[in-house]
Amino acid sequence: MRFKWSNFILFLGYLFLYFPLICIVIFSFNESRFVASWTRFSLKWYRELLSDPIILRATYTSLKVASLSATVSVILGTMAAIIITRFPRFSGKTIFVGAIAAPLVMPEVIMGLSLLMLFVGMEKIFGWPSENGTTTITIAHITLTLSYVTMLVQARLHDLDRTLEEAALDLGASPLKVFFVITLPMISPAIILGWLLAFALSLDDVVIASFVAGPGATTLPMIVFSSLRFGISPEINALATILMTVLSIGVIISAVLIYKKKI
């Protein structure tokens, strides 16, 4: 009896989590513009979406920004995680650790606002970044995702058996070689997960990008956001379905890979 009760709770909980998303997927195949009536199955909205040059350009911009910022963020984040877990105390370490983690709790609006003010100030003094294009969005997204990547890699480094690294150092390997031959392969699941998370976060962000983007650069979320202000639009259903499919396939593959590696 008790067991069934908990199943019922889980059913309701997952219904709440998944029902809205399932609705999107179903109505993306509806020919009618309105959700009120199901007319018939059609791929009309997908066709319209894929022939929209503005959306295609924005998708390209978003993917470019996301992959670049995820890559830089993973490199810097791994460095930061090594500093936090492997280096002895140095002056300013507490500030460093705090500042790395701070973007996690910083409201997006404030981060966007302060970064824009920095870019405007820099432009006034150095004349760079003059056009506020994708460079500024990339920089902002690296700063945002750096903390997430650092947390993930740091947790992994913390749990790692250090005897292997110490043995290699004792046998005369240079610290750099120890890192690339021993540490890096062992933390690679966390790095891959960090890259995916950074990529997803960058692809997702609308607030910070809206602040720092110039007139030339429009990311996909910015377009989605502006069209959502006018209510329901079936193209967004189609776009959402595509995005959900791609992201869930990515997450499932990486989860399976990590799960297999553990065994």
Binding site: F27, A36, D204, L228, G231, I232, L243
Partner: peptide
């Protein structure tokens, strides 16, 4: 994993899902 999976789909889309459900001509 089923709890996290929606978190990986875009944030805007999750908000949009509720616009579709709640708006005057919504579901």
């Amino acid at each position: 994993m089923l709890v996290v999976l929606p978190f990986w789909t875009s944030f805007l889309i999750r908000v949009y899902a509720w616009i579709m459900l709640l708006s005057p001509c919504g579901f």
